[in-house]
Design a protein around this nucleic acid. Structure first.
Lengths: 344, 344
DNA sequence: AACGCAACCGGTAACGCTACCGGTAATCCC
DNA sequence: GGGATTACCGGTAGCGTTACCGGTTGCGTT
């Protein structure tokens, strides 16, 4: 009961060789059914578990995926769940490391995991990351790597992410259709792709509907709630204040909502508001807030599938890009035109 | 550049033995400074990284901690950050697996990780888990295991958790002091310790202040927001409705808040509300909601420290219990008596 | 001159497993 | 009946690393 049983123990007890035991356990062809049964039942009895390290040492494979994420908020932890699901099924184990939005931490994590602990990586970069040498080093080692969610053009790797342009477009067009005329956007940090793409979608929608683009209504600020709160206060104290706000994250929408309420304005009458991510809490606020929902779980699954594909047939897949569609969930905060059915 | 360098390569190039290389790299005493330098500079150049598997195979140690959590919500992901921090510093890598509140998933995860992938576990059990054989099996293997947050009396292991009784007490006493007379509690599932302890604290506070205990005001429901919403609706339609509600999680507080607003009641005047966990969003709602803050990061750190201590001097520590104190954060939702300074 | 003792270093085995080669016995076929 | 084929099994080496034992120098001591 103390030392874990090995293949040797089984061989010794059954008076056969370790080779035979090994083959029997793996259902190889050239072992008699009789010995197979003997081996299997004994291994069951001894609670035999193969030593992964011995295997990895030999086969240079760990069957483990390193997942690096900037944090574990609602969206990312859901994506990780998706990764988990697929990986588990394919016989992989997942190691999750959060970089905590810190560039330094991201480097340490990748380095550690790449020290022969994992077969490859599924990465979402931190907001601080502007240099990608640590990830390129991994690619140089021929380790498979998939980038998801927070992607970057500076890395040649297969990629999974939301159609952020479409998300921005849907939200903005919806606001236009609801009769809002001066639509502001709280965009995120300028160096993040997701931020810029959502902004692009916003611009496209305005152009399509021939709404004049006012640079004063485009605010780049941090993802932080506080910043959004302050930015909204400033927006609302403009001479020609906006009559709708689109924030590219839900946390920012909360900040905006607070500022709107403090100003004594009502949603959706005075101001329309649409967020991004559709955190579950959003349906419960008052007013409930419209938000662009992304298939986070699915994105995680696709990333993992891509990774496993990359693992198996190791051809170059760096040009593969999987883009998933968002879906606008319309709630009270932006529903100015009365309709029969309100999405709760 | 293709194959990773091994000590053999270094030995071959330097024309010395692998043993010497090994010792040089570990700064052993009986290697001349000269060869040490030669070895170190060459290993640098070749980008040598020791193969963890060869090490683990020999020393039966993985320097990896398996962390099993039911989910990665705000509280738990903060705790995991704490674990990360301490583990990294002590030279350990962390593998996080979320059981997704599923008993079956928890079993699969523990089994996988225990297959010689990790040295031991830091666990928070799922809400479904009522049988603990899978964890006892791990203990039988003499693997160190620390239980945190969601603890259970059915497991003899060192334990780290919040003083949940005190949390319940603080919240309830605060409501009493604010002049609320009929204080309801939305407690969680009956089989969870954290739920029962917070309820106990509630009862203790009532007794201390000689407030009559009304069983109708004690509701056991799921952690779910929806349930809290419904439960609150029922509470508010009682003949003698409560004038304050204490929910043992923040998600539940949101549900309660929604029901209160729908009923046209105001906080804190008509109804006082206190939540639990102090999720960051809470300070931004309107009214801002009072909540019991727990030192999640610290709890994670303590759990990891305990684990490492257990690793090093492997004596029996199953009786160790670390209890950390919560701190009530008072905000608008329960602040009926006007004071000069409001905590924002 | 003979011995002892550091200071260094090399060789070997072992960790648990599988790939590979080879061997034995039984069976089959002409 | 002899060679070929099949079905099964064993031995050995090797994955990368370190522990252990032993050996070789060179120097100081008696």
């Amino acid at each position: 009961m103390n030392k874990p049983a090995t293949i040797k123990d089984i061989a010794r007890i059954l008076k056969i060789s370790t080779s035979t035991v090994s083959r029997a356990l793996r259902d190889a062809s050239d072992v008699s059914a009789e010995t197979k049964n003997a081996v299997k039942s004994l291994s069951e009895e001894l609670n035999y578990q193969p030593n992964k390290f011995a295997l990895s040492l030999q086969q240079k494979q760990t069957h483990t995926i390193g997942v690096i994420v900037p944090n574990l908020d609602y969206v990312l932890s859901t994506m990780v769940k998706g990764i988990d699901e697929v990986a588990l099924e394919a016989g992989y184990t997942v190691m999750v490391c959060q970089s905590n939005e810190s560039f330094g931490r991201e480097i340490v994590n990748t380095k550690r995991l790449s020290e022969s602990l994992v077969d490859g990586f599924i990465v979402s970069v931190s907001s601080e990351t502007k240099v990608f040498d640590h990830l390129k080093k991994i690619q140089a080692k021929k380790m498979p790597m998939v980038v998801f969610d927070r992607v970057t053009p500076f890395l040649e790797a297969p990629t999974v992410h939301l159609d952020n342009k479409d998300g921005g477009f849907q939200a903005t067009e919806h606001l236009i259709e609801q009769g809002y005329k001066r639509i502001a956007i709280l965009a995120g940090p300028k160096n993040l792709e997701i931020s810029n793409h959502r902004l692009e979608g916003y611009l496209t929608a305005l152009k399509k509907h021939k709404v004049k683009i006012d640079p004063d209504l485009i605010i780049n600020c941090d993802f932080n709630q506080e910043y959004a709160y302050i930015a909204t206060q400033e927006l609302l104290s403009m001479k020609k204040r906006p009559d709708a706000i689109f924030t590219i994250s839900d946390r920012m929408a909360i900040g905006a909502m607070l500022a709107i309420k403090e100003k004594g304005l009502s949603m959706p009458e005075d101001i329309g508001l649409v967020g991004f991510n559709n955190e579950p809490m959003f349906s419960l606020l008052q007013p409930s807030i419209s938000s662009v929902d992304q298939p986070s779980f699915e994105i995680g699954k696709v990333a993992a599938k891509l990774f496993i594909e990359m693992m198996h047939n190791n051809e170059d897949m760096s040009s593969v890009v999987e883009i998933l569609k968002p879906k606008l969930i319309i709630r009270e905060s932006s529903q100015r035109l009365k309709k029969n059915k309100l999405t709760k």
